[in-house]
Nucleic acid binder design. Structure first.
Lengths: 219, 219
DNA sequence: AATTATTTTTAGATTTGTCTAAATTTTATT
DNA sequence: AATAAAATTTAGACAAATCTAAAAATAATT
């Protein structure tokens, strides 16, 4: 089934809110999509009529099986294009979101299948987020945060969940990106902050920041 | 200046009609864009207000300098994406038009500059059509048709101007594509038809078809 | 439990791009 | 030159997606 650009944006927005908070609501979705609550309600009715949403006025809504599948396909398109923009065109990984947001609505299945093959069907995008396969299945990737791991082992950053401008600015300042090599030198039990080594430089990051930095063993 | 998808399609449509026939008119443009004459008139007013068109009601219209520049930038985006789809994703050259039609409206200048560099800033697209540079300048490519060249020289197809489904079907049947090697064996003065060798097979094509097949010396 | 505050939905207007049908202008033909 | 034909434009309607302002339902507070 083929959806409008607007419908796809709502489907994806609902999906992300459900992932983040367990559920979505009208106001949060309006905030996420930079639109107004009334517009959201209109679209909820449309998506509900297309069986993409379970929706009961005033009570709430959630993606149906069909809606979830549709969302995963859109997420796949978005992340493959992000991969392309970074790996092939050389964009910085923190500047590709807006462009991928447009590219994700273009063309049909054949384009995305060919793009996936061309890129080697990567499992994660440049932010470290997993890329669903053509059936909408998410690859299972062990996600462990910096906090959870033993000291002095060589780790590589695989994902950053909080992608607020503030967070990205901080990461940029310390030179932390996907693939960066990190060693945890010390763990302060008092506030959860960590002393780490990145790019051969020692620095301290808060427990709050560390919770959003996912890593895997490197080398 | 940033234009809507619809505006860009009209600008490009006018450009192509002007190239093909020397000028464009309301009905022809409606046909070209698969829309109605009334819709065309509406858009002409909008483009005229944006100084992209010289437009006098009932008398006619033509792109301004500014409109022409805008058209060439859109043509550049279209043809670079076509090149990408064929060279990198392995699409057949006669199947990429519709997808490029969507991709050409995505993103801003940086995306296209990076795409161009990534592709090696090619001078022609997979149909052999020239690709304007980032300033909208068309590369000058010697365009000679099959009819104009001496017998028994090895030629390579560089472009096909008539891209109707019928023409493409015929080319496909004979196995003629951009880059195909051709030798002209005989030129019948009576009706302009040509006996040629393609893919080691002799065949005869009409003078009408030959006029739309551009070639350059090969090897 | 009653009242206030928040969230969500409805009703009606707006914008962009499109359409049909009728009116107007230009072009062609007798 | 008058009339018919073709091309173009206007007027008004429509669909998708949005908005504001007001109404309705739910949740929170006293």
């Amino acid at each position: 089934m083929k959806f409008s650009v607007s419908e796809e944006n709502y489907i994806k927005g609902i999906y992300h809110l459900q992932q983040q908070n367990g559920s979505a609501n009208t106001n949060a979705l309006a905030g996420h999509l930079q639109t107004k609550a009334a517009s959201v309600t209109d679209m909820l009715k449309k998506l509900s009529a297309k069986k993409l949403l379970h929706y009961q006025p005033y009570k709430g809504f959630a993606l149906t099986e069909k809606g979830n599948k549709a969302a995963l396909i859109i997420v796949r398109r978005h992340r493959l294009w992000e991969f392309f923009l970074v790996e092939k065109l050389g964009f910085d990984w923190d500047k590709v979101h807006a462009i991928a947001e447009e590219l994700e609505h273009v063309g049909g299945d054949e384009l995305i299948e060919r793009l996936g093959n061309y890129l080697g069907n990567p499992l994660t995008d440049p932010h470290g987020d997993p890329i669903p396969d053509s059936q909408g299945r998410m690859p299972v990737i062990a996600q462990v945060t910096l906090c959870d791991l033993p000291l002095n082992k060589l780790l590589a950053v695989s994902a950053v969940t909080n992608q607020s401008p503030e967070m990205l600015e901080m990461l940029n300042h310390y030179g932390i990106a996907i693939g960066s090599r990190i060693k945890v030198k010390k763990h302060f039990a008092f506030d959860g902050s960590l002393e780490i080594i990145v790019n051969k430089q020692a620095c301290v990051i808060s427990g709050q920041a560390a919770k959003n930095i996912f890593v895997h063993y490197a080398e």
